Amino acid sequence: MKQKFQINGITCGGCVARVKMTLEKHPKIEKAEIFLAPKGATIITMKEVLSIAELQKQLSKLIGYTITELKQ
């Protein structure tokens, strides 16, 4: 299942790499695609639906990033 999100705090390719690696360490996340244009646009493929709180908890291993869901 794919869902669209916005990750605030993404400023460069290094941010993309760190956030992608951190999200993909979660056992229920198969793939995270993060874009610089538009900045922070993200598509996450999950094995089962995760709440924003669960995603933010995973992302909180890094400092300075917040995630919000984009309505389909």
Rank of each mutant, 00 (worst) to 15 (best):
A41K: 11
Q56A: 14
A53Q: 04
E24Y: 05
I10N: 03
H26E: 10
K47E: 12
E24P: 02
E69F: 14
P38A: 05
V19I: 08
M21K: 02
I29R: 01
P27Q: 13
E48A: 12
S60L: 14
K39D: 00
A53Y: 01
I34E: 03
A17E: 10
T66I: 15
P38G: 04
K25Q: 15
L62M: 10
A37R: 00
A17H: 08
K47N: 10
K39L: 09
E48W: 09
Q3K: 13
K57N: 09
P27H: 11
I7Y: 03
V19R: 01
M1P: 09
I7E: 04
I52A: 13
I10W: 06
E33K: 03
G40T: 03
I43D: 00
I7H: 03
L23R: 05
K25C: 10
K57C: 04
I10P: 02
L50I: 07
L70E: 15
R18F: 12
K2D: 15
M46L: 12
P38D: 06
Q72L: 13
F35T: 01
M21C: 00
K2T: 15
E69C: 12
I34K: 02
E48M: 10
V19G: 03
L55E: 12
E30H: 08
E69M: 14
T42A: 02
G64N: 11
I43R: 00
K47V: 10
F35C: 00
I10C: 07
V16P: 01
